[in-house]
Simulated assay, not measured.
Amino acid sequence: MKKIISALNDIYQKTDVESSLYSAFGELLYSAVTPAVPFALPAAEKFDENVAQENGVTYLCVHRMTGIYYVALKGDGRESRNYAVMLDAVIGSGEERLRDDFSTEEKLRLLLSGELSSVQKNMFRAHFSDVKFCHYMLSLVTRTREMQSELKHFLSMIADKRDYIVTMDERTLVYLRAACDDNEEYHSSYEFASILYENVKEELRIDLTICTGGTIRSFQELSGSYEKVIFTYKFGKLLSPAANVYSYNDYILIRILSDTPKPLLIKYFDSLLEKNGSEVLADPELMNTAEEFMKNSLNISETSRNMYIHRNTLIYRLDKIEKETGLNLRVFGDAVTFNLLQILNTLIKGE
């Protein structure tokens, strides 16, 4: 990473090109300028030879042994792209990419990143020709590098010989857990992730977030699966910051709406919002209550028990939400509408 930071500083001092360094999850690691160049990772298909341009920013994907990083350069014209290509050559992001002596973990890290060309993917395909892919896709993000080391050791102790554990960056692990056996005890990747989270908390007592991208069933699905958990992590933290386990399936609607023009999102939002609904959306207590109520299948007894509040307190809050928004969360259709309002509100704010 020191080589990347040095290159960003050199380019800024010599050309005044503003740039910042981010992790694959969009966390700012370093910036040559203040404020940092904004980051909103483009879709994998928009990258051409490690470079993508979108909304006034040029992105360079950098592969290192320690993980995958992104450099964001201000501007999205030809000049900015040329600087990105030059920076790619200076830091040598591709210098370690296709060595024959790469370990299985290193090959998987490059495949999961989604940045390899079809030719490069085929070069790795032979290595996995004997693997029957049917694996849960999980990303596990810890608060510190030290926690990641503990977590990786723990996973290696419980992993099956068909499982894969991949270090993506200094805080992120990918765990590909073999599934689809006749005696498989879990019904979904989310169920497995939830139980894994509780086991890790009990054994290691560390802070982490787990995101699931569903089940990988072929070699071809590897490259897109990591993008799914990055997306899930981003919007999971925005919409449900108190949660620790997120499933991509819960955010597919957001994925669809995220490509909708903002004026149209505002139109949808205004058509659904009634009375003083905006006040409810800005109230952390009411929003947390609504989220827990929906997470517990609209069950009042289960929700009040999990939130450690009296049943009547929960009913009072639900009544208040209904009074201000016109939506009775006890009714499934209204609960779906309320969830849509929350999603639209987040996308409109652009947070």
Rank of each mutant, 00 (worst) to 15 (best):
F25C: 05
H310D: 11
L87A: 04
F25H: 13
A44C: 05
L327F: 13
Y233D: 09
I348N: 04
L204C: 08
L318P: 04
R171G: 01
R78D: 11
L204N: 03
K323I: 04
E115D: 14
V33K: 01
E285C: 08
M123Q: 14
L108N: 02
D10N: 06
S194K: 14
T142W: 00
G67H: 05
S278Y: 13
M1Q: 07
A40V: 10
D181M: 10
K349N: 11
A335K: 03
K323G: 05
A44M: 07
T260Y: 08
H310V: 04
D207H: 10
S103A: 12
Y136N: 09
K152C: 07
S278E: 14
S271W: 05
L60P: 08
P38C: 01
E274I: 06
L110D: 13
K262Q: 08
F25L: 15
K152Q: 12
V280W: 07
L341C: 07
D163R: 00
L273A: 10
E274T: 11
P35K: 03
A89K: 14
V33M: 03
F338V: 06
A52L: 07
I315P: 01
L108E: 00
L341G: 04
N306H: 06
V131G: 01
R109Q: 15
N55D: 15
R64H: 07
R145H: 10
L341H: 05
H135C: 01
F332A: 13
